[in-house]
Design a protein around this nucleic acid. Structure first.
Length: 335
DNA sequence: TACGCGTGGTA
DNA sequence: TTACCAAGCGT
């Protein structure tokens, strides 16, 4: 059953091949391991649409892992700004330096797994796609496809990897890995799966059940608390005062506006506030009030307003800056 | 094992 | 508007 299953999946993949900047078409030599690794890290919890233009910029700026390894960390973090999950960028730098130091990427999943920012999934993806190793790359797409194929409500990583490995056609792991993810992304979707177009439906226990979308079982959602804080907009001579956040924790190592901590209590209404930004993080929602300040706070630097876009502000602070700038221009217009 | 960790698109 | 969700990893 599994052999025929994989063969139909590969045929479907070849017929519906999606050309992406980090992919080689079926039958052609594999992409540069650097490009595979970089794309896989960028794609962690991030959509293809969001990654594509950022990947192109990134490889144009640093075409090789050696180039990336020699880049200053602040420049890499700045290039990552807006992509989110900034620990990925910090681990990317550490990984690039380790790989460059050892003269290239290792080719086995076990060795890749030991590098910073490379977990089970990414190790198997790089090993299979870049090095042709028969490894089981289980991401959320593959997990869903397998859960439905076998009508398993709650699987374990170990069991899923075992089931996938049994499906991998020897020597075809590169295409197979991508075929499974494409299937999950386009047909075996979380909601409203397109079973009528699925090459695996004749083998699919969830399809047979009549309610394929119930697999795998959803996790109960957690309530998202609200937090409040203040950021200071300190402007002088067409420059604004920026700081760098502590390397650990939320937005770690990123450029930022100086500000207060974030608490459960709303900030008291500030008459002079330039505006408020509401921003939703994974585990809480933040209401950030932007207030004009007069003198620099803490260690930082003056960033020219006409180069603010290149400062590498994460989205929260990019939006806070927009609020401050548009508020200032409104005041000028009113005067 | 469960939580901390960003952001933007979609229904 | 709200809720869900996206090629996960580190601790």
């Amino acid at each position: 059953m599994t052999a025929n299953c994989a063969a139909r999946l590969l045929e479907h993949y070849v017929d519906n091949f999606r050309r992406l900047p980090w992919r080689s078409p079926p039958g052609e030599p594999p992409p540069d391991p650097y490009r595979v690794w970089l794309s896989e890290v960028m794609l962690q919890q991030t959509t293809v649409a969001a990654v594509t233009p950022r990947f192109e910029r990134f490889v144009a700026r640093w075409p090789t892992v050696e180039a990336l390894a020699n880049a200053p960390a602040e420049q890499v973090l700045s290039e990552w700004a807006g992509l989110g999950y900034y620990a990925r960028a910090r681990n990317l730098i550490a990984c690039a330096r380790e790989v460059a130091g050892r003269g290239g990427f290792p080719s086995t999943a076990a060795e890749l797994r030991s590098l910073p920012g490379i977990g089970n999934y990414t190790a198997a993806a790089v090993a299979s796609i870049a090095f042709g190793q028969d490894e089981a790359a289980v991401d959320t797409n593959v997990n869903r496809v397998v859960a439905r194929l076998h009508a398993i409500s709650q699987s374990t990583r170990q069991l899923t990897e075992q089931l996938v490995l049994a499906m991998v056609p020897p020597g075809r792991a590169a295409d197979f890995t991508q075929a499974m993810m494409d299937l999950g992304a386009t047909i075996c979707r979380p909601r409203a799966p397109q079973c009528g177009a699925c090459p695996l439906r004749q083998d699919c226990a969830a399809f047979a059940s009549g309610t394929p979308d119930l697999f795998p079982a959803r996790k109960p959602k957690r309530v998202r608390p609200k937090r409040h804080g203040t950021a200071w907009w300190i402007e002088r001579n067409r420059c604004v005062w920026l700081v760098r956040r502590p390397i650990k924790g939320l937005l770690g190592g990123m450029a930022a506006l100086p500000g207060s901590g974030w608490s459960e209590q709303p900030v008291r209404a500030d008459v002079g506030a330039l505006g408020t930004v509401r921003h939703v993080f994974t585990h809480f929602a933040l209401s950030l009030t932007v207030v004009r300040g007069t003198r620099p706070i803490g260690e930082g630097w003056w960033q020219r307003l006409d180069t603010l876009a290149e400062a590498g502000l994460p989205t929260l602070y990019r939006r806070a800056a927009q609020v401050a700038i548009s508020s200032s221009s409104d005041q000028r217009d009113a005067a």
